[in-house]
Design a protein around this nucleic acid. Sequence first.
DNA 1: ATGAAAGCGCTAACAA
DNA 2: TTGTTAGCGCTTTCAT
Lengths: 342, 342
Amino acid sequence: MNKRITLKDIARETGVHVSTVSRALDPKRDTPLSDDVLLRIRETAQKLGYRPNRVASSLRTQRTMTIGVMIPDITNMIFPPIVRGIESVMEPLGYASMIVNTDSQRGREQRLVEILQDRGVDGIIHTAVLLEDPTIVRAAEGGLPVVTLNRKIEGTRIPYVINDETAGIDAAFSLLHTKGHRRIAHLAGPRNLSTGQLRLDAFRTAATSRGMDLDSLTIVEAEQFDEADGRRATAEILRRDPRTTAILCANDRLALGTIDHLRSAGLSCPEDISVTGFNDMPFLDMIPPRLTTVRIQQFEAGAVAARHMAAILLGNGDDVPIETILPVQLIERDSVAAPRKA
Amino acid sequence: MNKRITLKDIARETGVHVSTVSRALDPKRDTPLSDDVLLRIRETAQKLGYRPNRVASSLRTQRTMTIGVMIPDITNMIFPPIVRGIESVMEPLGYASMIVNTDSQRGREQRLVEILQDRGVDGIIHTAVLLEDPTIVRAAEGGLPVVTLNRKIEGTRIPYVINDETAGIDAAFSLLHTKGHRRIAHLAGPRNLSTGQLRLDAFRTAATSRGMDLDSLTIVEAEQFDEADGRRATAEILRRDPRTTAILCANDRLALGTIDHLRSAGLSCPEDISVTGFNDMPFLDMIPPRLTTVRIQQFEAGAVAARHMAAILLGNGDDVPIETILPVQLIERDSVAAPRKA
DNA sequence: ATGAAAGCGCTAACAA
DNA sequence: TTGTTAGCGCTTTCAT
């Protein structure tokens, strides 16, 4: 447990004042220093194996060079790439990230924001999912730099980065419609999650913009974005409209559940019913029938949000756009076909 | 940007000294305090919305209540559960985690250990993969609490938590052997990764313990734990021994690559060649032919490592066993069958 | 039961 | 160009 080397140690060793040492070791220093002293200090620091104590420095400068990253659940495969995207820009700038999982629970989220603030994070990147997150808004109003991912918070100046989910849903809808489907159901995501709500709205828009009557469309909402709920909701869809020929699902896992239910109901995809997903999660293309889905840019979304955060942290917050919309891409695979002739 | 409330503010408000406030707000305080003052301080703290400044407290106490978690790559699906396992025990104890991705690069790993130490982490949980990690060993010798996951570091007293990979490989081998396979090839993982090496050794042991001649066994090593290398290595295996009837792969992704190559080579699994994987990654059971594999306990491994870390941090390090081996489980699915009769 | 004082390691304004 | 000084917010020893 060798005690850590501090500036004081180097000062003693070089016979110079601590503040001089501090200056000499500060990379982006402007104060003039004699080359002699500078060199001596650097060498001694090197020799003693000096490492700056960031805790002390943070206390003094009121900056921890750490940002908080709030995500619903890192085990959800769409989030790790986002995290790496954030890291890819923050780490080179000297920032570390504290990642916390909210499990989409209001109370937990609130606690975690406080925990992050107690630890003095310089900002928070919040991959919001809940439709309302009062805590983070309050934190932002309190002056904490905040950037949200996936979620636009109305009535604030909090920059947000979102995927063009509307365009994604429209592309999927368009594909189904073009193939001739008219009895298109929507397996919607949870109403309280932003993506669920957003995609549902987009679905409605896509339908009406093609002159379809909303009342004729079956819409069933899942409570969770998972396979089990996908199965349940699909059963409900088929119960409500047995003549459904296509199901546009709010995400891939729901779609997987849908396909599974169809199979156990003796129906096949895409012959009997076409299905589309959303996200294009890893390994999806290895699961038959290979799902037609909408690919979103996870890594890039994280990177963009981080770039915004960095700009704010570096004092260029004015250059950051409130809204950033990332393009999505329809990935056509095998789960969509023309409807059977009646 | 309302300024944060500090102890001083509360002291002023309650007309009492800061040190008294500090005592009153310290949850595990033993010093005697008059109920009157205690109550008044607590109320005021509440009223003003006081939140302790952990940076300041860390500087004073030399404890940040933060641990570092080093993993190769969070986008590798086996790591998120480990992270959540760690979190599940550390968070309730008041510890936060700083997660860093090493990308299995020696230089990066070294830098990250330093970064974590600069930030004053109280300990590091290191899900080691590289066969040699001199940096972390040095950090541990310097007095930093370290627990490793997946990897035993010989000649040190660093506690490690590993899955019983040997038993897992043996179980897979045993299954193949029992089914009648005798020309069993091993698609090994990268030699420089601990799991690759460990599983290769286990494979050899499993073979020899059944009286098989090692020279008769085809062993090809992948350079990466991914599908592409699985395909390449499988081609090599079939080239070396076209009569191979079973391929025991060092992990699931390699196995997926194997199956893919077999398919493109006009062979089918399990009819022509049986295949086994390792890890039982998510969604594996949805990819045909459903892979027979060895399931390891990711979440639990993280939790156990964290419990060890917590024990050390709380001063009960003597109770922590150097070695913890977690049981694994063979999951039989559809990728193994008896070999075709010659 | 409470106050006074020191100091964790660093930075920054000011002085020389 | 370098030193002095003060202090970030908190904990803790010592005194009262």
